[in-house]
Amino acid sequence: MMFDEAVVNVLDETDALADMIRQSDVFQNYLEAKRQLDQDEVASAYYRAFMKTKESYEEVQRFGRYHPDYQEVMLKTRRQKRAYDTHETVVTFKQCEHDLQLLLDEVVTILASSVSEHVKVDAGTPLFNQASCGCGSGGGCQCHA
Results as ranks from 00 to 15, higher is better:
72 E>F: 06
96 C>P: 01
61 Q>R: 15
55 E>Y: 02
106 E>I: 02
68 P>F: 06
63 F>T: 05
129 N>D: 01
105 D>E: 10
58 E>G: 02
89 T>S: 11
81 K>C: 12
43 A>R: 02
99 D>T: 01
61 Q>I: 02
89 T>A: 14
53 T>A: 05
27 F>G: 00
72 E>P: 04
101 Q>A: 07
35 R>Q: 15
47 Y>G: 07
9 N>K: 14
103 L>T: 03
125 T>E: 01
56 S>L: 05
62 R>L: 13
87 H>A: 08
135 C>P: 08
139 G>R: 05
20 M>E: 05
68 P>C: 07
17 L>D: 09
31 L>H: 10
9 N>H: 14
35 R>K: 15
52 K>S: 11
109 T>I: 06
71 Q>G: 05
82 R>G: 13
81 K>P: 09
17 L>I: 12
90 V>R: 01
132 S>R: 11
73 V>M: 06
142 Q>N: 14
104 L>T: 01
1 M>E: 02
62 R>Y: 02
49 A>V: 04
128 F>V: 10
66 Y>W: 11
44 S>Y: 08
83 A>W: 03
47 Y>A: 12
51 M>Y: 08
23 Q>V: 03
3 F>C: 03
2 M>P: 04
92 T>K: 14
95 Q>H: 09
6 A>R: 08
109 T>V: 00
71 Q>V: 05
73 V>T: 00
5 E>V: 11
24 S>P: 02
57 Y>S: 07
110 I>T: 08
71 Q>C: 08
39 Q>C: 15
131 A>T: 07
87 H>V: 13
104 L>G: 03
95 Q>D: 04
5 E>A: 14
140 G>C: 12
41 E>H: 12
120 K>I: 09
